[in-house]
Design a protein around this nucleic acid. Structure first.
Lengths: 338, 338
DNA sequence: CTTTGGCACTCCCATGCGAAGAGTGCCAGG
DNA sequence: CCTGGCACTCTTCGCATGGGAGTGCCAAAG
């Protein structure tokens, strides 16, 4: 177990390094923070912290920088979440309230997060399976062509074309629309498969093929793969990464383009609160020198999706966590209102 | 007027510089291209080309690199569009045909363009005003709440919430839906305002307020500002820009996040064919060292939107132009089919 | 046992210098 | 008008040097 003072030394190292981006030495530490001890003592503490793997030196006779393990301890034990100031909160709320539709909400959220944290922002669209159905619409575009439109309580709209095996009359379509909505409206998407299972039985034999086709298309849109969408922004902030970045930035940009990777990144967060994954804690190799701060958001008590930021492991964790948490809260409010 | 050989020298300089990314000297030129003259002669030609502003030296006693003006001449006079090979065409077609909806088409197009050109790809969604209306749907979500869904012939779907000034009955809604569709279905969006002008007159006085509200929301979605959406991808390719890129890449990433800037970039292209804007020809300052290659695409004869790539002025113009043109062609086909 | 000041040591980094290389411009001759 | 030769310029690289920051260890004091 580390003594109280050694933890303070670690905290000071993290804070200084995050501020200056340069390895921090014992002398500078005692000057900037009044620890009440001499540099020599700090040196001993540093040696101990290094022994335990919380800090490291880039090379002999350089200052120390925190390791992933050091940041982890900092986040877990040494730092809280820095709350947003009142003006900041107002600004967030005002900005988000101007949104006209879901796309706009998400787009604004991304911009906001990127600006507040000065990092790369990632916002997932509300998940279909965790939302409830507001309405299912069927439109006849041609005798054997139907458009299926899904609308969720979070304002998300998804549409698919359906090519019917047989012509489908306007009355049958109206019938299907009515039956479908009476069964699924207001229910959670995850329950939809069970709720529509026996629906074809209610129809005339010649329509059953078409009804099944429509239903299977409906179910297809709910599978994980299609239903997860996201938006990213603030990539220009990557240029603040470090001076060495051709090598650092490349894999990050690549990872950001892989939706699957990003979804996993956000998706692994289980905690109801803000989740932080530091450096090598991220499964994806290209993100080994980045940290991800994420949190769920939702219109009610339950999270319908995640949002977060990606930045260098050397980031302002308390501030970032505060911003992410605040934005998630307000986005949830906006969605609940719409 | 430049002699034929000088143009060849310019062409050779552009080709070599694009390939090697290094200033090209007179000796290297004569070795790699058989111009049939000695380095000394080439030097004279180079001096002339520099005099005219087509090439420049980074510093005395270095090789030459093309200027924007040099690239312009190269694109206009010295190089054609390199057509895609048959296998490449097939690959493009196969990849695009797998798309399930418009979002997917656009997403795939972006990936494709980015991969083919190894540059940043930008694809604009089909413009609303240049598309035709397939269907307008009205859904009653609450007594005084209506959702408006617009569907275009290109598969684009746009939705808006409408808060009605007064409760609006289901029959009135059906009436409005029917009248609206009979007037606008199959018509161009740009004609919609005129077509619905007098629609409120057909309704009972107590419903007119709501009808007007719905119509004005409909018209709002058509204004330029909202109707232009786009998707970008391949930003990781920016890392191939140059070795100096902290300074180069930053403004480019920033510009790419500004939808307005990008839309202007694509929008300025008038030509029915591929348009190339080189370096300072781009109005936006951050893009002064990049070139934009863009072209319109559409389901029929007319372009409904633009797509293109953004890359360093030092790019393979013939290849890029070929890829952009080919992709646009196939996207048009896919949209026409859906 | 912990803290402190002193001191030698290590390693990075900025600076300066010199040599090498690439490329040019110019000139005189074919 | 083309060509070969030649002097000149400018960058780049390697290398040695000195300064500086920071460490680790030790012996003494609290």
């Amino acid at each position: 177990m580390l003594s109280e003072r050694r933890l303070q030394v670690l905290r000071a190292i993290v804070q200084d390094y995050v501020g200056t981006e340069e390895p921090v030495g014992s002398k500078a530490l005692t000057e900037r923070h009044n620890l009440g001890v001499s540099p020599a003592t700090v040196r001993n503490d540093m040696a101990a912290l290094e022994e335990e793997g919380y800090i490291a030196q880039p090379h002999t006779s350089a200052g120390r920088i925190p390791t992933d393990k050091g940041y982890r301890l900092f986040v877990d034990k040494l730092a809280g979440v820095k709350p947003m100031t009142a003006p900041e909160r107002r600004a967030i709320q005002n900005f988000l309230e101007g949104a006209v539709d879901l796309d706009d909400v998400v787009a604004r959220t991304v911009r906001l997060l990127a600006q507040l944290t000065r990092q790369v922002a990632v916002v997932q669209y509300p998940s279909l399976t965790r939302s409830t159905v507001r309405h299912v619409e069927l439109l006849s575009l041609a005798p054997a062509r139907v458009m299926l439109v899904l609308i969720t309580d979070t304002g998300r709209v998804e549409q698919r074309m359906v090519d019917c095996p047989a012509p489908f009359g306007e009355t049958s379509l109206a019938d299907l629309r009515a039956r479908l909505n009476s069964r699924v409206a207001g229910r959670r998407f995850s329950d939809v498969p069970k709720l529509v299972e026996d629906l074809p039985d209610a129809f005339e034999p010649e329509d059953r093929g078409t009804v099944s086709t429509v239903l299977s298309t409906l179910l297809e849109t709910l599978v994980e793969e299609n239903e997860e969408r996201l938006m990213i922004g603030g990539t220009a902030n990557l240029t603040r990464f470090g001076h060495d970045f051709p090598l650092t930035i490349r894999p990050v940009l690549e990872a950001l383009e892989e939706q699957v990777v990003l979804l996993k990144l956000l998706g692994e967060a289980k905690d109801p609160g803000v989740t932080v994954r530091i450096g090598h804690e991220n499964a994806h190799e290209g993100l080994n020198s980045t940290s991800v701060v994420s949190v769920g958001y939702g219109s009610g008590g339950e999270a319908v999706a995640k949002l977060g930021v990606v930045g260098p492991t050397r980031m302002d964790y308390p501030g970032t966590m505060g911003a992410v948490r605040a934005v998630a809260r307000y986005v949830g409010q906006i969605l609940a209102e719409s």
